[in-house]
């Protein structure tokens, strides 16, 4: 449903999206996971025909995003990163305007608007001005608007950015509904690990405009070696780990050394014996966070806590792989 080949966008000398290659199958929920500034929004903007790529090509629903804009536009629904519903209109007026823009026949317009409002549970507030809506309600209205014309492909740019955890769960439920019941192919971007993990069939980790790794959440977690062992020790010497085949990766995060380890529970003894005295050790199952750290070398804080957009620190890690 979505294919890109060497898709590139430059702003002056700065490359925001760099030879991006993607393949999203029909019916799939695909997640672009990356920190702020990774190029997620720019990628979506190109796919939805809002900006033209500097080079490379892409098709959406089989239509070229540069030469067949009009067909692409008829095939897609969008929830933008920034709020894009009109504050001074009511929820229903927003949907009516959208229906007219998409040339929906008058007979089905009313019915679809009613259904969409029901789906996102906004029927009761439909005739209030949007400026009286909460952040979650706006998001739901945008979802309703995006699906009104029954698009084949739905683009969701950070659909839960800035929402509290309950509202986020709520939105997730609707996204699953769209995918399962309305059979929509969905491409969403996020910088929340949990969101990517629970919603997406496949994930592409994007950083500095490039896809770093791509696969199902399971595959990605398995690929970094199963478990994670975090060791705190001054002057850690990674040479000591040479020859340990169960150590799949090493990453440094400040004073912490993060190891991707196969079957950590049975190998921990051997590992610690090799390293010698340490300050502390922590063992956990690999999470997408670890995948992320490994492929982008970026550390994030407070993920999912504040719902804000902070969360990604600077490049503080020096990573390397150890081949067994």
């Amino acid at each position: 449903m979505i294919n890109t080949s060497k898709l590139t966008k430059k702003f002056g000398d700065f490359t925001a999206v760099d030879k991006l290659g993607l393949d999203v199958a029909k019916g799939e929920v695909f997640g672009l996971l990356g920190p702020n500034g990774a190029g997620k929004t720019t990628t979506i903007s190109m796919l939805i025909t809002l900006v033209e790529p500097t080079s490379g090509t892409a098709t959406v629903n089989g239509f070229d995003i540069v030469t067949q804009k009009s067909d692409v536009r008829k095939s897609i629904g969008i929830v933008f990163q920034e709020p894009s519903v009109d504050d001074l209109l009511t929820g229903r007026e927003n949907l009516e305007m959208h229906a007219k823009l998409y040339c929906m026949p008058r007979e089905i317009r009313k019915k679809r608007i009613r259904e969409a409002l029901e789906l996102v549970e906004l029927t009761e507030r439909a005739d209030s001005f949007v400026k009286t809506y909460s952040g979650g309600m706006r998001r739901r209205l945008e979802l309703a608007r995006g699906l009104l014309h029954r698009p084949k492909v739905m683009f969701l740019d950070e659909p839960t950015l800035g929402l509290d955890p309950q509202t986020r769960e709520h939105i997730w439920m609707f996204i699953r509904k769209l995918n399962k019941e309305e059979k929509m192919t969905i491409l969403l971007t996020t910088h929340y690990m949990e969101e990517a993990d629970t919603l997406c069939d496949r994930i592409g980790v994007i950083d500095s405009g490039k896809i770093r790794v791509l696969g199902t959440p399971k595959e990605l977690k398995r690929a970094i070696g199963g478990d994670t062992v975090v060791i705190r020790k001054k002057g850690f010497d990674r040479k000591k780990l040479r020859g340990l085949s169960f150590v799949k990766s090493i990453a440094q995060n400040g004073s912490e050394t993060i190891l991707g380890v196969q079957d950590a529970h049975s190998n921990l003894q051997k590992l610690l014996a090799r390293i010698g005295p340490i300050d502390s050790v922590e063992v956990r199952e690999a999470s997408l966070t670890d995948v992320f750290l490994k492929y982008t070398g970026k550390k994030f804080r407070d993920e999912g806590e504040d719902g804000g957009e902070g969360g990604w620190g600077n490049r503080v890690m020096h990573q390397s792989n150890v081949r067994g």
Binding site: L50, I78, F80, Q81, E82, S84, L101
Partner: peptide, 13 residues
């Protein structure tokens, strides 16, 4: 405000 985008990506030329 991303507001115009909604109109700019609609099929209306």
């Amino acid at each position: 405000l991303d507001f115009l985008k909604e109109v700019m990506v609609s099929p209306l030329s």
